[in-house]
Nucleic acid binder design. Structure first.
Lengths: 146, 146
DNA sequence: CATAAAACCTACAAACTAAATAGGGTAATA
DNA sequence: TATTACCCTATTTAGTTTGTAGGTTTTATG
């Protein structure tokens, strides 16, 4: 299941995508609008900034804003950043790889093979869906990739 | 990520599948062979029994055994039982459905739609893979469904 | 320059979940 | 009838997620 943090990130990013013309938007405004704890959201936006997805401006009139087009921000990137690995096993993760302690040989491990398939099927969706797909008002605008 | 409980379940089931000719197998034997805490494994096997996957025999010479063919036990069933929902959002879960608190309307929610796709892609793998695929010694025996 | 407003940073507390342990109860069988 | 091993409940331990607190730095502006 996706964590609250991840869901909050999607909500916040959607808000920023839908209000790009405003320029910098206050944490406060997003938090109130999406019903998220101000301080908790602060941490999330900071992470998104460090990951190069958001920009920020300090001081009066400051706030956060997108520094990429919504079409360039994949769901996979957000999920990996805030939710952690997409794969079901560490030995199958592309971004958080770790050797499985209980598996002697990945090459011949049947579980490994199957979990690779699960990972690839999942990625086929989330690597090809972007923030733009989340904010599209009509299903017509959705880009079905498969 | 799959929980330890889930991985233990797969290990135990594999052991039982590979030792079907033995009849009832001691918890102790599985725990030792797969390096799992005896008591923890006891709980897991009990859950699998209640779910109709395992049978048991009490008293001397007792133990656990499969009551279905390995080909009839899907990975999806085991994962749902021990790991919980396969879906990434409660509003998209087939077996653990719950309305999302922050979503006003599933029918028009873009996230809902995308998460359905993720779920279906995942299920396409784990509903069609069984315990038999886990214990197959050669990759030749694997049944590739896509 | 002074001030207010806002992001930034560090640390911690509370709540929840997963993992493991303990100890006994109950049923079957040699 | 004693032994063996499943069955059940509760508790502890550890780890993660979620949320809170307070201070620091930057910047626009009067």
């Amino acid at each position: 299941m996706l964590s609250k943090k991840t869901k909050y990130a999607f909500h916040a990013l959607s808000y920023l995508a839908e209000n790009q013309e405003k320029g910098a938007v206050l944490i406060q405004e997003i938090a109130f609008s999406k019903n998220i704890s101000h301080k908790f959201l602060e941490n999330i936006l900071l992470e998104l900034k460090k990951a190069g997805i958001l920009g920020s401006k300090k001081g009066k009139g400051g706030g956060y804003y997108l520094i990429k087009k919504p079409e360039e921000i994949t769901l996979a990137k957000i999920i990996r950043l805030l939710n952690g690995p997409i794969a079901w096993l560490p030995c199958v993760s592309l971004n958080y790889y770790e050797k499985c302690s209980d598996c002697p040989d990945e090459a011949t491990c049947n579980m490994h093979l199957i979990m690779c398939q699960v990972r690839d099927q999942t990625l086929a969706v989330v690597e090809n869906k972007t923030l733009a797909d989340l904010t599209a008002k009509n299903t017509d605008k959705q880009t079905f990739k498969y």
